[in-house]
Design a binder for these strands. Structure first.
Lengths: 197, 197
DNA sequence: TTTGCAATACGGAGGTGTCTCGTAACCTGA
DNA sequence: TCAGGTTACGAGACACCTCCGTATTGCAAA
């Protein structure tokens, strides 16, 4: 959603440009980080001009926040009712978001020292919280089903799930193809359960 | 070690400046990331001038690599021979590096898209590899001592150790005070062992 | 006196946010 | 059906800033 909502009668806003600019903004964010984020480069990459961008967004911060919101527009995987399979599906979804979109560099930006508060808030609300909520729900369902122990340390175990990927990436190492089931199996075992299969 | 080694007879190089510049470079790197890294800001923060920095380092890349090398100048914890305790000690050391130095933002930079190859190499060689080697050694010792299973998935389990911290940090969450023993306990259990105590 | 360091200064490049054009699209009302 | 008003567009320009990498000058230590 852009900033203006002109109810006038003139030429309607070219909606296609919005998407191009947001995609370009995500790519620029991934490549340069927030501090070096350049509106000139974004406008160029989007095939438009700087004034056109300023007409839609107030500035760098507003554009970046909108771009993050766009990144979060993904459909979560279906819940099957089998907690272990749901966990693997969530991890595969995470892998998909990381590899397809610019999600990994964005996570890297969040490790920085001077993260713009609005950006941090947008990222937490729209990216972190939804995923964490779903992962927590899967683990809670596993406890309810008796698949894992009721007194398991779910807070730390939950941090293993996505953290494993970050660890590989920081080290510059390739993530194994069967990463998702292997992570799920280990976390299951860490929580006192036995992975099916 | 800086780049020049003038053996002339004139005034000797002021070695103190080197350290100030490297510290300032690490702080700048943590705050702005690599792309927005500014030699002007570094020189200002170090209380010197840009030409003085250029006299010591060839440019941005060389300075950053030296700064990373300085970051890696830490003493690893002593090995006790009790694998579980050694693992906790390593995790506490990791925590110390993350919280005291600028190690976390630097890790975030490594998640970026266009990391300078020289920086990536320096980080991998001097930060990632030493820590990973020590962690692998601890897990291998645990296997040898029969504390954890011999067929455990040590590759993925190893990624849990540091990854857990990254996961908390990306989410903007506070890391628990007893993070190290809790991580160690869960990983122990994931590898088929029982944590002592 | 020799030598290296520090500070000032320089031109070039690139970014920012704003402003003004002329043009093209769209809606409304004659 | 067709003009007129309204609006967004691309393009160009602006004044200002920060950064880069280097050249020059003056000072201080050996």
């Amino acid at each position: 959603m852009t900033l203006t909502d002109a109810a006038g009668r003139g030429r309607p806003r070219d909606a296609e440009i919005d998407g191009c600019v947001l995609d370009a903004a995500l790519a620029e964010l991934a490549a340069k980080g927030y501090a070096a984020f350049s509106l000139s480069a974004v406008a160029d990459a989007a095939g438009t001009t700087r004034p056109a961008v300023y007409r839609r967004w107030k500035g760098k911060a507003a554009l970046v926040v909108d771009a993050v919101a766009r990144l979060a527009e993904v459909d979560p995987p279906q819940v099957t009712g089998r907690p272990f399979d749901d966990l693997v599906a969530e991890l595969e979804d995470f892998r998909h978001c990381i590899t397809e979109a610019a999600a990994l560099p964005l996570a890297g930006i969040m490790l920085g020292d001077d993260v713009e508060p609005a950006l941090r808030r947008a990222y937490t609300e729209r990216v972190v919280t939804p995923r964490r909520t779903r992962l927590r729900a899967v683990l809670a369902a596993a406890v309810a089903a008796g698949d894992i122990a009721g007194d398991a340390d779910l807070e730390v175990a939950g941090s293993f799930l996505t953290g494993s990927w970050y660890s590989f990436a920081v080290a510059g190492a390739a993530v194994p193809d069967d990463w998702a089931p292997r992570v799920a199996r280990l976390v299951w075992q860490a929580c006192g359960g036995a992975a099916p299969g």
